[in-house]
């Protein structure tokens, strides 16, 4: 399978196989009006297989979302056909409007346009808690 190399854009590489679609959705890539490729189950020496996302435009990307979904992913910024910047991800301390608080007693369930904000409570367990009610993210 061949996909044209990107001249200016973003490649999200080393995505754990199966997580590409979730990332595609959470990053809102379905709403972009530029060429985007989600390639699944690509053979990988390190991971066995992996997913890759290629975006044919240099757009602002929410690295927190990538870090939350798959901290093992890498992001390559491509300029003039070359890798201009390579970033490794980590779990973000704060997640804003990435996941929703499901606690019906939480103020986020009623307050108009209130952002859903979670803090990293336990890095080892990858556990996030709502900053308003402390309910664990599902």
């Amino acid at each position: 399978m061949n996909i044209e190399p990107i001249v200016n854009g973003i490649v999200i590489d080393h995505i754990t196989a199966g997580k590409g679609a979730e990332l595609y959705s959470l990053l809102g890539l379905d709403r972009l009006d530029v060429p985007v490729a989600l390639i699944r189950n690509v053979p990988s020496k390190r991971l066995g297989k992996k997913d890759i996302i290629k975006i044919d435009a240099e757009l602002p990307v929410d690295f927190d979302v990538i870090g939350y979904v798959d901290p093992g992913a890498t992001v390559n910024i491509i300029r003039d056909g070359k890798t201009a910047e390579k970033r490794t991800m980590e779990l973000p301390e704060i997640l804003t409007d990435v996941i929703k608080c499901r606690n019906p007693r939480c103020i986020t369930s009623t307050e108009q346009e209130l952002k859903h904000v979670f803090r990293l409570a336990d890095r080892e367990k990858r556990e996030y808690r709502c900053i308003y009610c402390e309910t664990k993210a599902e």
């Binding site: 103020i107 307050e111 108009q112 209130l114 900053i131 308003y132 009610c133």
Partner: peptide, 29 residues
């Protein structure tokens, strides 16, 4: 009215607020 708007409005009248609300996290808002 939202909690956020209530807090902004009452700030114009008072020097300090004590608030009770049935929703968790309302005081932080």
């Amino acid at each position: 009215e939202s909690v956020a708007d209530t807090a902004k409005v009452i700030s114009c009248y008072a020097d300090i607020i004590a608030m009770r609300h049935p929703k968790e996290g309302a005081a932080l808002v």
